[in-house]
């Protein structure tokens, strides 16, 4: 798979990143050579090997359904850029046209 400028621009948009034309150019090249490495890995036959998402053997790790104390709001809210009456304030979201 080759990384194109269009793909980098698409990814930037999904990740909410603003890239200058120079950055797009640079990332296209860098990501493309990175993909070259995966191409190399892809040549190995892994058809009969399960993907390793986790290195430990699969065992369930659960917590019991018990309520624990939450954050104090006074501690939580200042972490965010803006707040009002206990809510986190964000730029207006327009849901529909």
């Amino acid at each position: 798979m080759h990384i194109t400028k269009q793909l980098v621009e698409h990814l930037a948009k999904l990740s909410l990143l603003e890239l200058s034309p120079e950055e797009v150019e640079r990332y296209t090249q860098e990501l493309d050579s990175l993909m070259g490495y995966f191409e190399k890995l892809n040549r190995l036959d892994t058809a009969h090997i399960d993907p390793t998402f986790h290195v430990e053997p699969p065992t369930n790790v659960f917590r019991e359904d018990e309520v624990r104390e939450s954050f104090k709001r006074e501690d939580l809210l200042p972490v965010f850029p803006a707040q009002e009456d206990g809510a986190i304030k964000v730029p207006k979201i327009i849901e529909a046209s």
Binding site: N60, V61, F62, R63, E64, D65, E66, V67, R68, E69, S70, F71, R73, L76, L77, V79, D85, G86, A87, I88
Partner: peptide, 30 residues
């Protein structure tokens, strides 16, 4: 472990896990 009760004040039932603070780990409720 945050409570699921309905009638709470805004953002009262939050913690590092459910607000997505870096470095915290989710643990599944059995």
């Amino acid at each position: 472990g945050c409570s699921t009760k309905f009638d709470a004040k805004e953002n009262e039932l939050t913690c590092p896990v459910c607000t997505g603070m870096p470095g915290c780990l989710p643990v599944l409720n059995k």
